[in-house]
Simulated scan of single mutants.
Amino acid sequence: MTTGRPTGYSAISSYSRVEILHLVQDRDHRTVSELVSATRLHPNTVREHLQRLMEDGYVVSETEHRTTRGRPRVLYSATDGVTSCSPVQRRKARAAADRGDLMRRVIPGSAPELDTAALHQIDALVEDLVDAGFDPLVDEDELTVELTPCAHASSQASHRDVLCSVHLSIMQSVLSSAEGPLSVDGMRSSCDPRECIVQLLHAAQKP
């Protein structure tokens, strides 16, 4: 599960990148100039942040199709694992599933309640959360993911709403990229802003 870089050093360890990711999650096909206007960051800084987000599989780019003269723009969208897919995120999901299968063979336990596809989704989700600086605790019976204490609750407390929205969207994207029956159902409400428990939903439970 090692990634070769310090724990917590991820594409979303910087709030500037979180802000950019939030913008492209809100609307696809963003241009650099739009993101510069919204964030007031230097264009080169925005490009560097976008490159890092693409390297971690959270953003994809495409070249604008033009029917008139002019240089085509590069358009950026957030990955969702369905309509906007990142080969990086898919590759990471497959590698996480392989490591998860190996661990389950090496350390046998009780028969898992979840099907193989769902287990592979959990494998991908846990590895992505660990890379982001979390220490996730998964309850496979209740289908919950506890992220307490939140790795970003203190350092970025004033941006809690944006952070939670971005993290939930990333989690759904990872689950979709891993291809299985699980999806994010939402975050459990809590009086403690440092507490974070995400509820998952199995397709078999949907009405």
Results as ranks from 00 to 15, higher is better:
S155K: 06
T83P: 12
K92G: 05
H167S: 14
S165R: 13
A117G: 05
H65S: 08
Q51I: 01
G109I: 15
A151S: 10
L175C: 13
H120E: 10
E19W: 14
Q51V: 01
D28K: 04
D123R: 14
V145F: 02
M187H: 02
I20S: 07
D135E: 08
Q205D: 06
D115Y: 00
P72M: 08
S177I: 14
S10M: 02
A78D: 08
R99V: 12
S84N: 12
G133A: 10
R71W: 00
L75Q: 04
L35C: 13
S155E: 07
D139R: 02
G109C: 15
T144S: 10
I20C: 08
R47S: 08
I197F: 03
M54S: 01
L200G: 13
A132L: 15
D185E: 09
A38R: 10
S173T: 13
L21F: 00
Q121L: 08
V36M: 02
G81V: 06
S176H: 12
L200R: 14
S190L: 01
P112C: 10
Q172P: 04
H65A: 07
A95E: 15
I107N: 00
P112H: 02
R105Q: 11
A118E: 01
I122A: 07
M1S: 00
A203I: 09
R69I: 09
I20N: 01
M171G: 07
L129C: 06
V106Q: 02
P149W: 05
D123A: 15
V24E: 00
S177C: 13
L53H: 06
G4R: 14
S13D: 08
S16K: 14
V46C: 05
T7R: 11
P181A: 04
D80V: 09
T83Y: 13
V138D: 03
A96T: 15
L147K: 03
R69A: 13
E140D: 13
G133N: 09
L102I: 11
L114N: 00
E140F: 08
R194Y: 14
D192S: 10
P112T: 11
K92N: 07
V36I: 11
G133D: 10
S16R: 15
S77G: 04
V88M: 14
S190K: 00
D185H: 04
R52F: 05
D192H: 07
S177K: 13
V126A: 11
M54A: 06
A151K: 11
D26M: 06
G186D: 01
I170M: 14
M103Q: 14
